[in-house]
Nucleic acid binder design. Structure first.
Lengths: 191, 191
DNA sequence: TGATTTAATTGAACAGTGGTTAAAAAAAGG
DNA sequence: CCTTTTTTTAACCACTGTTCAATTAAATCA
């Protein structure tokens, strides 16, 4: 039997998540196998089970990181020295940027409908939307209707969902995203 | 060996497509196997291969039907006796109505995402969009920018995709749909 | 230092799954 | 009766997630 690897090349949760991240983003949950991840890492598939209970456990450890990222993104926005209008614009554009920078996680949160994963992530989208809605309300001094915020959210979601699906990066569609956001802003400030 | 079934219950391409459609929409391309489809039909899995070359062939035949359906819907609108503004509103609302009345078809056409089928999943919706865009351009006397039409499409898509996912019918969200459409119309007629 | 314990890794094994093919069989049509 | 059409079934091979005894490097202790 082949020997255990030396400690300076020991496998870690982070290393597994990194590789799994690339593969999941590239091919989706179903298409990626534990053996593929292990092969990519240069380890045997059994080794992953020492660090993660199972495939779903690995997947959720992975997206937990990116939920933290959304919160960080919202806090980053709060600290910027901008006018309310500029902050609002940055919020909307930031939503698109996040969705297209982490398309797989966006898919899990707002698009994917996988029976196996649904048990874990059910209320996550709702929570995320609540944060978004509160930010929008604050940045418009509560002048905007609830219904309108919801429409704004769906308008952004439509953009991200589409370009997520056809696999475009944020850079590739940045200009379009900006014009999309401008139209939404025009609608917000219109009576 | 078990006998061949009597002719009055003969398997047909249509019957296979019907069952496959439900399963594909519910669970995605990868998660649905030829054996599952056959089991649901009450036939053995080999029988499907008499009617379709392989799994992808079955999927393509299925999606072709769906796109034919949306084109028919667009032509129906053209014949209505309404003003341009009313037609435009009916077009946008009709898009949502179609998506939520046939959520299975819509999901397969515009939401479902599978690497193995990405070529088809990007080209076919593109054609459908072109028809939609031409209709919008015509109903606004070509006064609307191309970019704006595309944004309108994505705004509608966001609405349909979301309520498709959580399984709401058109009736359940009709009011919200109308206010969503009104916001989009306001944006269209604004400079 | 050497012995022992602990942590990490391996690879075989299990119990399935998948798409696809092809020979055999039987119903239908002529 | 013979041919064609349709269906079944076994078989092939390459997968899958997961478990677990065996194995070995590192860490700890005497």
């Amino acid at each position: 039997m082949a020997p255990r690897k030396a400690v300076d090349q020991e496998l870690s949760r982070e290393a597994i998540i990194d590789v799994a991240h690339q593969l999941f983003v590239d091919q989706g949950f179903q298409a990626v196998s534990m053996r593929m991840i292990a092969r990519e890492l240069g380890y045997s598939h059994g080794a992953i089970y020492y660090h993660f209970k199972n495939k779903a456990d690995l997947f959720y450890a992975m997206i937990e990181q990116d939920f933290a990222m959304i919160n960080k993104e919202l806090k980053r926005l709060d600290k910027l020295e901008l006018s309310q209008e500029e902050k609002l614009k940055e919020l909307l554009l930031g939503y698109i940027r996040f969705g297209l920078t982490y398309p797989n996680h966006y898919e899990v949160m707002f698009i994917m409908n996988d029976k196996e994963l649904q048990h874990y992530a059910t209320n996550a989208p709702e929570q995320s939307y609540q944060q978004f809605a509160q930010a929008v309300a604050a940045l418009t001094n509560q002048q905007i209707e609830i219904k309108k915020i919801w429409s704004v959210f769906l308008m952004l979601h439509g953009f991200v969902a589409h370009y997520c699906r056809i696999g475009h990066s944020f850079q590739e569609v940045e200009e379009l995203a900006m014009s999309h956001v401008d139209m939404i802003l025009g609608m917000i400030y219109m009576d």
